[in-house]
Each structure stands twice: as structure tokens, then as C-alpha cells.
Design a protein around this nucleic acid. Structure first.
Lengths: 291, 291
DNA sequence: CATGTTATCTGACTTAAGTCAGATAAATTC
DNA sequence: GAATTTATCTGACTTAAGTCAGATAACATG
């Protein structure tokens, strides 16, 4: 085999099917067939509706029903009719089921840790894994409005600040910056949008209402593993849409000229450079866009 | 889920089991169960011995036997006793089998191409995949002696030259360098060793015999995706071993001071810096090691 | 050449997974 | 409130995968 792209891709796919696939199948390690283990795990991860389980796991209705019955006999789950609609059923873990689920989680986490620990550069490995995972699942990136103080938002923001700190010559200290108040980025004054890819926050943007027909776009950030996929544009479009809904006619933003990709992105997406409009010490470039 | 290492790892593993796993299972796309398809593919990839197949696919002897019978009935393979030992059997593809195998290959290649094509930075994606694949399978890196003109060797060398070209201020042109003759790196005068990881060449080193008890180490290179895993040391140890076997007592090498990791590596593994010993325009640092 | 060993095969199982046609009961619609 | 739709369940299957104890025939060794 030579190093042509397709061979490299297929080598990757052999490596993961034999290694990660083996991890997956090792759910058998607790003496339960894979099907039942998958159902238990899905329930533990909060998929309680039977229809949702069927859909998520891609199982036939009869098969899932039998698997649920099996777990019920083992006293790992309980099922009850849905409060709103007694035709539907919801499954929940019993105390025993929770223990069993935790055991599976511990097993998976342990294997992940072991694999990461034996690598000399776990951060590089994880960055590569993020990139691959995002590439494989990129149709499934979803944007959701959240509180800017939520765990997902903080996860993005801390990476955003860290990146500014490493890219600004003078470093970056949030407390010196004009950090927007959280409630300025919560409806009705503004919004905060996080991009999620299968549970991992990979980008964000905030809209800080200025009270009248003007608002500021803040904290636009995309994870390094996701750059080049057009996520910044998607986030910006989403935030502009919200702004329009809030009857905002003019958007502003500030940035720093060392963030060259950002400058280029604003210019080519309809933003116009304007004079400084605040006294924040970090930004040195200011933009405006009319909606 | 937050962005802690274990969650990121598990996200990766979900992404690949659902995507790549689906590709793998799509062997069903040709109306044959996975087991039979795997056997056909293994045979197509040159694993003809029944015992080898059993070992490689991890199948029970009875099960494999039945799968082979099935493929034989479909007229995709033929089996015959092994010429050296009539107890053993070898399986070979018929013309029909070859066609079917090629169809599977085309399918796999097509899916790989499609996935790469829809990514804006296929080279970055492939680099990440190489890194992950090597990390997962790193116990299975094997060193083999090859002709320095073989496909694997050329694959390493061309990447090596490209890297020198990008890292030397003045660029790099092989034809201006003292390119060792291939036969100087073939036994009995020398050797050329390539590191392979599941079919992909990921590193190399040459030993150029100088004719008496002195030899030169040339073309030590490790693929970027593999750096930090100790492969350079393994290659160097292997080449030193060969040198000892050839009754060589002193090794020399030349390098360039812009390759800082290399300099550090030589220093910490018993090499001593010496005066220039050739007039090659590229190197500016020279080392020696007594065995 | 008798004996034990080895490689593969056959027969008789088990288990997991999945399919599909109704059955049942709760909601929804007319 | 009768008819229809919806969500889940049950029973009766099929297929794939795998296990294991011999059977068979070729080879190896004394």
C-alpha cells in the first residue's frame, strides 16, 4: 500500500474498527448481549421514551420491546406509561440499573483513559480525534440558544479566552476587558448561541442588546478542529436572524487585527469597518453591519 | 458533556462506530452476510491459507470451513490442497470472485473518496486520521529491510525530501545533494529499513556501507503523525544492530542545524559532534558514534 | 508400518439479532 | 360514541454467528 489518500483513509478505518470496535463490543464484558447493553446505556444517557430509543438505536419495535422486557426481568429498568399519553411508555433505571450503567460508563472511561495515557501527546491525539469526529458528523452540528453561564457556553468561552491570551501580543485578561453581563445576552435583550456536535460544544456567538435598535455581536468563536467548515458563517447568520427578530437594525462588533481570519471573514460577509466605539483596551478594529 | 479528555475520546469513538462502522457493515450492500464478505476480502488481499484466514479473521475452524464452502458454491473461490502439505488448503479467487472482490474494493474506495471530497481540508483530515490510526495501532509498527528503490522506501524518501525543502532556508534539491547510490544501502554493503504500520510506510533509515569498518547513517525520517512515539530510536537501534552484524565499528552521519529535534536526538543517544567530513552543500552538523 | 499429530471438515447444537403479521389499548377524528 | 390512527407488545418465524465434539485424511516419528 502506498500513501495515497484512499489507502490512508482505509487504514484509518481498519484501525478504528479493530480497536474502537473492539472497545464497543467489549460491552459483552459484563455478560450481557450487545443489544441489551446498548439499550441500558441509551436509557442511562437520558433517552427514556421508547419511541426515542427505537429511533436512536435503529431497532425494530418488537425487538426493542423484548429487550426492554429482558432488562425489566433483570430489575435494571422500570417502565411506566407516559403521563401525557398513556400509549407511550417511558423507561427509567432502577437503583440496580443505575449501578450497572455506571459500571459500563466506568469501563468505557477507563479504556479511554488508558488509551490516552499511553500516548506521549494526548492533547495532539485528542485534537486529531476532534477533527475526525467533526468531519464524520458534520451534518449533525446543531445550534442552540443557551444561557451564557451554562456549562457548554463556559466551555467555549474559556477556550476563546485562552486563544486570545495566546494570540494577543500583550496577552488577554477577561477582567480588564469589557465583559458583557450575562443578562445582556439573554432574551429579550440578546441571545447566546452554542454550536454542539454530538454533545461537544464547538463554537459560540453572543448578541448583546444595547437596548434600542442597535446590538453588538460578541464572543464569536469556532473550535480549531471545526475551522473551514463554514460554522462561523452559520453562527453569524443565526445571530443576525435573532437580531432581526428583536427589531435590531444595526449590528456592531469589535475585534483585534491580529485575528486575521476574523477580519477577512467580517469583510467578506458584509461588514464595514468603522471608528472605535468603545474604550476596551483589547480591540483595535471595529465593524458595523446594517440588517 | 463537557470538553474533558474522556468525553472527547468517547465522542470520537461514537462518531467512528456510527460512521465508519456503517461503512464496514455496508458490505451487506452486496447481498452477502458480513462473515462471507470478510472472508472474500481477506482472500482477495492475499491471505490464501485457510489457517491464516482463521487466524486473521478470528474465526472458529468449523465456521470458516462453512463460509468457504458457501463461497465455493457461489463459484467465487476455489480451494485446493497446499502443494507442500496436502492437509492444508489454499483458497483462491475465481474470475467471478475477483470481480466481486473488486466491486467491494470499489465500494470502499468510493466511500473513502466521497468522505474526503466533501471535506474542505482533506490533507488536514488525513493527517489527523494517520495520527489516530498510528496511536491506536502503535504496538504493531514493524521494521523491515527493503530495497531503497521499493515503493515503500520511495514513499518515505519523497516525504523526507519535501520536508527538507520546506525546512531549509535555501530549499532542498536531491540532485545537488550527495544522494547515496541504492546499492550502497543494500546488503552486504548496507541496508535500508522501513517502518510500516498496517501497510503505511511511516519511517525509514539507511545504512550506507563505506567499505571497511566505517558506515554512514542516512535518511532517518519519521512521519509527522508518528513523532514522539520513539520510532526514531527504534529505527536507529535497528540500524546499529545491523551495522554491528556487518562488523562496523564507527558510524557517522551528517545533518542540518535547522533540524533541531534531530540534533537533540543524536546528542542524547550517544553521538558526538565532529568536524565536517564531506562537501555536501546541505549539512552543517556532523556526528560520530562508536559501536 | 504402526502410532500419534496436525489441518480441515461435518453434524448437532446455542445464542443473538432481526422480521413481520396481527393483538391490544389509548388517543384522535369525524 | 363509532371509526380511525398511533404506540407498544406478543407470537411465530428466519438468518447469521458461533461452539464443540468427533470424523477424516495427510503427515511425522519411532
Amino acid at each position: 500500500m502506498l500513501a495515497d489518500p484512499v489507502s490512508r483513509f482505509r487504514r484509518f478505518s481498519r484501525a478504528v474498527t479493530s480497536e474502537v470496535g473492539a472497545l464497543d463490543t467489549s460491552f459483552l464484558g459484563r455478560g450481557r448481549p450487545l443489544g441489551a447493553a446498548r439499550v441500558l446505556n441509551a436509557i442511562g444517557h437520558g433517552r427514556t421514551d421508547v419511541a426515542e430509543l427505537r429511533d436512536y438505536l435503529g431497532l425494530d419495535s418488537g425487538l426493542l420491546s423484548r429487550l426492554l422486557r429482558g432488562l425489566e426481568v433483570e430489575k435494571l429498568i422500570e417502565t411506566a406509561p407516559h403521563p401525557d399519553d398513556a400509549r407511550r411508555r417511558v423507561a427509567t433505571l432502577t437503583a440496580d440499573g443505575r449501578r450497572e450503567f455506571d459500571a459500563y460508563e466506568g469501563l468505557s472511561n477507563g479504556q479511554a483513559e488508558a488509551l490516552l495515557a499511553r500516548h506521549p501527546h494526548p492533547e495532539a491525539l485528542l485534537a486529531a480525534m476532534d477533527l475526525v469526529a467533526t468531519a464524520l458528523g458534520r451534518d449533525r452540528i446543531s445550534l442552540t440558544e443557551t444561557d451564557p453561564r451554562s456549562a457548554e457556553a463556559c466551555c467555549c468561552l474559556s477556550q476563546y479566552y485562552a486563544e486570545l491570551a495566546s494570540r494577543f501580543r500583550q496577552g488577554f485578561d477577561v477582567s480588564l476587558s469589557r465583559d458583557p453581563e450575562a443578562r445582556d445576552m439573554i432574551r429579550p435583550r440578546g441571545v447566546f448561541i452554542v454550536a454542539m456536535s454530538d454533545g461537544l460544544p464547538i463554537g459560540c456567538v453572543g448578541l448583546k442588546g444595547a437596548g434600542h435598535d442597535m446590538a453588538e455581536v460578541k464572543r464569536l468563536w469556532v473550535a480549531p478542529s471545526t475551522r473551514g467548515l463554514g460554522l462561523a458563517r452559520r453562527l453569524m447568520t443565526a445571530v443576525e436572524e435573532v437580531a432581526r427578530g428583536l427589531s435590531i437594525t444595526t449590528l456592531r462588533l469589535d475585534t483585534n487585527s491580529s485575528l486575521t481570519e476574523a477580519l477577512g471573514f467580517y469583510r467578506k460577509s458584509g461588514w464595514r469597518q468603522i471608528d472605535r466605539f468603545n474604550d476596551d483596551p483589547y480591540p483595535d478594529a471595529f465593524f458595523e453591519k446594517c440588517l
